[in-house]
Design a protein around this nucleic acid. Structure first.
Lengths: 108, 108
DNA sequence: CTGCTATTTAAGTCCGGACCTAATTAAGCG
DNA sequence: CGCTTAATTAGGTCCGGACTTAAATAGCAG
């Protein structure tokens, strides 16, 4: 699950947000931040490995664009978790409404 | 955005997955891992601060359960990004279908 | 070929975070 | 009250990751 690691960094998250607006070259992305070009390049590498961005060469420029794969994986994970949770919510809600004060001890 | 940082760790991700199946005490969670109880406690603290889990006291036990807040925030972020991307996808798809081999140079 | 632009790779520093053990708090129970 | 159980806080180690500067690669233009 490289997706979460990739997005845990604010700079990388910002890059993804920028690319959501449209593709950009590595240099153009770099201009949006106060860090060195190598730093940006490393961030892009991480995002690429997490399948969050794609690269395309155009002359000397590397044009970066969003890759839907990583986002889908992320969304799937969240839905899987929320799916379970929703089922339990139904039960929980009913119980809360039925007996709001009761505290139950559950055996190990 | 504490959500991504919290979920970037595999142990914490696993904890969330376990809690998706149902609430558990800190001790019960700890039994699922090969790390010390303090380590688990620290992980739970991070998850709590990211609003991914909730705590409820029951005698000496602390019962942990999923908190929907963090997951919603996560889902919102993904949707925001994918929203932009989907718009662009429409254009892209049409273009790909129209001329699959052509490579275009696009002005900035 | 030389040089210029765009970007990545290499090498090294530094800080935060994941872990441990030991000590602390807190709640039953005899 | 002492003892046990459950969990957290304290203090300290260690490794990975986000930077940096310097060097390498790659494409285009004269």
């Amino acid at each position: 699950m490289l997706t979460f690691i990739a997005l845990s960094d604010p700079t990388r998250r910002r890059i993804v947000e920028l690319l959501a607006e449209g593709e950009r070259s590595a240099g153009e992305l770099g201009e949006c931040f106060d860090i060195s070009a190598p730093a940006i390049s490393q961030h892009l590498k991480v995002l690429k490995e997490a399948h969050l961005v794609q690269v395309r060469a155009e002359a000397q420029r590397r044009i970066y664009a969003l890759d839907p794969t990583g986002l889908e994986e992320l969304e799937d994970w969240v839905h899987r978790i929320r799916g379970f949770w929703s089922e339990r919510l139904d039960v929980l809600e009913k119980r809360l409404v039925a007996n709001p004060e009761k505290k139950k001890r559950r055996p190990t």
